[in-house]
Design a protein around this nucleic acid. Structure first.
Lengths: 343, 343
DNA sequence: CTGTTAGCGCATTCAA
DNA sequence: TTGAATGCGCTAACAG
């Protein structure tokens, strides 16, 4: 439309478009006098370069895609922030897309980003089945998945050691004398949910307390669903003295359900979450949970992505460790303490 | 690069690029036989159209920009979601950018988006000074600001009636017999913070209790800063029986500070927040706060933006009303109640 | 029904 | 030190 182009600037100064282009890109081969003339014209006309044209020409958009399942889940914004900080520093813009826990929308986002010719994508906690996800990722110049693993030729991966995480939780609860475990597991579409579930199953079995089927309820990763699920679990399982929750949102719901059921936390039942979202310490009681280095997850993912874009396919996979943070939902009146395990 | 182009598809089928283009865009003038041949070739070659080229040609990118000050502040993701839902439905992609409460980064985002040739931008709670913001917005084909007003020729606006909001809070507290008000105000860079501060000043004065300077502390909009600010306020102001907080994060900090100072909430001091983030009801005690229709803010902003892009510059400005939600931080042991004011 | 021409705005290549 | 030609991939506008 009426937008100022490089041509307009060139005409204004009385040079060719090439000269303007060279000035814009700080290339040599232009006299200082011309350079400042051109700069003046650029300011005066309010010229702003057309990224579409540049990208088309260069087949590089300097734009990255970032897909998260739910931006209103406080777990994800911190990951986004880590990734963005690295990207911006490297001169990339980030296209964030919110899949709203919907596989369709996740797929659409990935396709749209391919059409927009992003230079690479990061998919956080993908909900799509493996086959479909990989097909979509193959369309991209470079890709990284967070909270899932992937074949190195398809995507880099940044994951959590869920098994180590849940074992910390289990051992903490066992040390407190808890024996009757209940589990609020996440949705099957979540890789993390499946890993945590299996980790807990294995961990409890290893401690001689295999998980009975009536001690397990699956739930969507939201507060209210967590509350409903907890209520159902109490009904099914009878008296429990420890509750492992898929994530902190579910744990928040569980705390509400405990209050409604007249159960004291932690005296009657100890509750453990996963993620350590910023608000976990504001819960009543403050939530014992597995701290996940969310920002680092994002930072690592973006570093790997940039490496892959640059053709350096090192770091096929990075695994980060969650760390148990003990608060009032497992230990009454405890001053907050962080238990560090040797890494 | 090795990417499949429309030409490749055309060659494969043995037709011209135009025919492929017509099929891609569902245009008439292609026989059914050709159409299916082309479709087959598209699938087979894994062709994906190049949005950069399309946008360049059309000078329309079908991409929108959305700038928020801090994606980790739970106030914003819901706005984003409202805006995204509307945009996606209209076939637009959204470029989300996180300014991290930094004016520089806000400006950079806006400039970057202009270079990427988004069709329009929404800036939520802009931190930039008016003059600079407007200059940046003028570069865009269409713009909408949320939580600030703007001249209609520069941008549409979706705002909150902060004055009505704070008056509801003040009257609620006065009705409870509170008289010694303290105020944790937000940063001056925030338009909302300034409006809320002025509204509270005026409202308290109107109730015969003008705000003394030692009853006011300004703070950054984070939990920890809120806690520090509250501690400082208690020191400065001595005994208070009501605390008005810039937003729910600050209120969360204030609740912590009250606990540390041995003040009972609400018996000793009543605390009111602003925003009604999802976690406000999980605080201890649950937070009385002004509910802001965040999702609607986003929906309205995006609708207006799409209107403006389409050249329909109706709705210069939409003003939404916050609604007081009374919880345990002002009324002990109250069942949650929503007070609706006539709209 | 199908194809050719041309140009969106920019930058690489080559020439002057 | 500067400029002209050319094409990135796509699609209006116009032939045929």
């Amino acid at each position: 439309m009426g937008r100022v182009t490089i041509q307009d600037v060139a005409r204004e100064v009385g040079v060719s478009a090439m000269t303007v282009s060279r000035v814009l890109n700080g290339q040599p081969g232009v006299s200082e006098r011309r350079r400042s003339q051109v700069r003046a014209a650029i300011d005066e006309l309010g010229y702003r370069r057309n990224g579409l044209a540049r990208s088309l020409k260069a087949s590089r958009s300097h734009t990255l895609g970032l897909v998260v399942p739910d931006i209103t889940n406080p777990y994800f914004p911190e990951i986004v922030r880590g990734a963005e900080d690295v990207a911006l520093e490297a001169g990339y813009g980030v296209f964030l897309s919110n899949a709203v826990e919907d596989q369709q929308r996740e797929a659409t986002s990935l396709r749209l980003m391919e059409e927009r010719r992003v230079d690479g994508v990061i998919v956080v906690s993908p909900r799509l089945p493996e086959r479909q996800l990989h097909a979509l990722l193959r369309g991209h110049r470079a890709a990284v998945v967070v909270n899932r693993s992937a074949p190195p030729e398809v995507a880099g991966a940044v994951r959590l050691d869920h098994v180590s995480g849940v074992m910390q939780a289990i051992d903490h609860l066992v040390a407190l004398g808890r024996r009757r475990f209940g589990l609020l597991a996440g949705p099957d579409s979540s890789f993390a949910a499946r890993e945590r579930l299996e980790g807990i199953r294995a961990g409890l079995a290893a401690r001689g307390m295999p998980l009975a089927p009536d001690r397990l309820v699956k739930t969507a990763p939201y507060i209210d669903d967590g509350a409903d699920a907890a209520a159902r679990l109490f009904e099914m399982a009878g008296r429990l003295d420890a509750l492992l929750c898929y994530n902190d949102l579910v744990a928040a719901g569980a705390l509400q359900a405990c209050a409604s059921a007249g159960l004291r936390v932690p005296q009657d039942v100890a509750v453990v979450g996963f993620d350590d979202i910023a608000f976990a310490r504001m819960f009543t009681p403050p939530l014992t949970t597995l701290h996940v280095p969310k920002y680092d997850l994002g930072v690592n993912a973006m570093r790997i992505l940039l490496d892959r874009i640059a053709g350096r396919n090192v770091h096929a996979e990075v695994v980060l460790r969650p760390t148990l943070v003990v608060r009032g939902s497992t230990v009454a009146a405890a001053a907050p303490v962080t238990i560090r395990t040797a890494s």
